[in-house]
Write a protein that binds this DNA or RNA. Structure first.
Lengths: 227, 227
DNA sequence: AAAAAATGATAGTAATACTATCAAGAACAA
DNA sequence: TTGTTCTTGATAGTATTACTATCATTTTTT
């Protein structure tokens, strides 16, 4: 089994967490703790305690918890991006390609074939991205963070999928808008199914991922006239 | 000109901010300050300073800033809900009704005819809802808050619109899901246009509200087979 | 005029989000 | 092998936040 290294550029950290044992522990444990506590109650002090290190040591890797979250979400999107690249080798029909992309984005099971040096629990990471990733940009510092290039991972992914959409329907006017809408919806609808069920028909007692997939495919195909 | 009183039930506050002058100042100023600082940097201490009162006094009205945000977002959704009720008197064709609803949701100018005893800047409130409202539910306390009934305003609105969708196309399987998706999208796409333009075709240098409207209408009508 | 309610003033606490300093141990190079 | 550098740990300290509590004063109600 091959080990994939997703390269995260250095603008995300002060010291590369992938370069040391402590760094890898920070990544692995932060995913767990974020999943458990949520971003608001997650602190570097608690993280330090959980890996038997110190606050000061963690601050040597990441400027603050926002940057750490940015690192983790970027890792997630880069990895989805990578999975898409691989699958695209096996499908050339743009309609099929679109279907496969939506599968990768929605199904937990599509994620498993990934292993990083700091072996991260991917279900946890997905839950963290689902619940916390919007907070990376819904802040007064968006423009600043954007200038530093820290939303690159998400933007690249969005653009990659938009190109497939242009391929399938060159007349459609909103390829990027529909991609960003549906990427967000994929997380939101799953979240609603679990916590605010009256906002969606998707039923958590059924096959949640499958239902989200059906909803997204239906919306996308109708919108792009692919039926 | 008639003054509309939107009733916000008492579960949102400790003391009704609409019942006193100080309370109205709290509401009015909190919208301004939230717009200016963002939720993370907004504190009751700063709010107290801005209205020349004290932290302790504000805590007599609201348990904490999350509850205050919940109050404000509910005010916003209730008011959209109310505007829809009015407009529905003038339109009986469900397709037209849908169009009018999307207009209310997207266009700033549709909001103006509202005046509350604590005269709130509606453009500010809309910006606050756009940027901060997701944070009311993206938290570990969702279920608890939901049990208290504090998402009622948003859920009621979503259901009201879903009924119109069922009216226009009884065979469509996801009325609530598409409504929650597009309500979220209406804010997100405007936010992206302003801060992360590569995620959308919507152009802030053009008529932003109008373009969001076009995108939503297109997506909705295609999805529901209304063309 | 008395009672009750609302507000202000002040103080205090635990937790958060850092920054700084110094010592100890590991790795690595000459 | 010794010396140097790099990494981590230990500890301390600061400003701010998110509250809670108490008591005095002002305003409103009866």
């Amino acid at each position: 089994m091959s080990v994939v290294q997703l390269l995260i550029p250095e603008k995300y950290f002060l010291k590369d967490p992938n370069s040391t044992e402590l760094g890898k522990k920070i990544i692995k444990s932060s995913v767990q703790l974020l999943d458990e506590l949520g971003f608001e109650h997650f602190t570097f002090k608690k993280l330090a305690a959980s890996i038997e290190s110190t606050e000061a040591s963690i601050y040597r890797y990441f400027e603050n918890k926002q940057k750490l979250l940015l690192y983790l979400t970027t890792l997630y999107w880069r990895w989805i991006d990578y999975l898409i690249d691989i699958k695209m080798h096996y499908f050339s029909d743009p309609k099929e390609r679109l279907t496969e992309i939506i599968k990768i984005v929605t199904y937990k099971s599509e994620l498993t074939s990934f292993s990083e040096s700091a072996d991260i629990d991917l279900s946890s990471l997905k839950r963290v991205v689902m619940t916390e990733s919007d907070k990376t940009y819904l802040t007064k510092q968006v423009d600043e963070i954007n200038k530093e290039g820290l939303f690159r991972g998400y933007k690249d992914l969005c653009h990659k999928i938009a190109l497939v959409i242009e391929d399938v329907n060159p007349d459609y006017a909103y390829p990027h808008a529909i991609v960003s809408t549906l990427l967000e919806a994929s997380h939101q609808q799953a979240f609603f199914a679990m916590h605010l069920p009256s906002l969606t028909e998707i039923d958590k007692t059924q096959d949640l991922d499958g239902e989200v997939y059906q909803f997204l495919i239906h919306t996308l195909f109708k919108t792009l006239n692919l039926d």
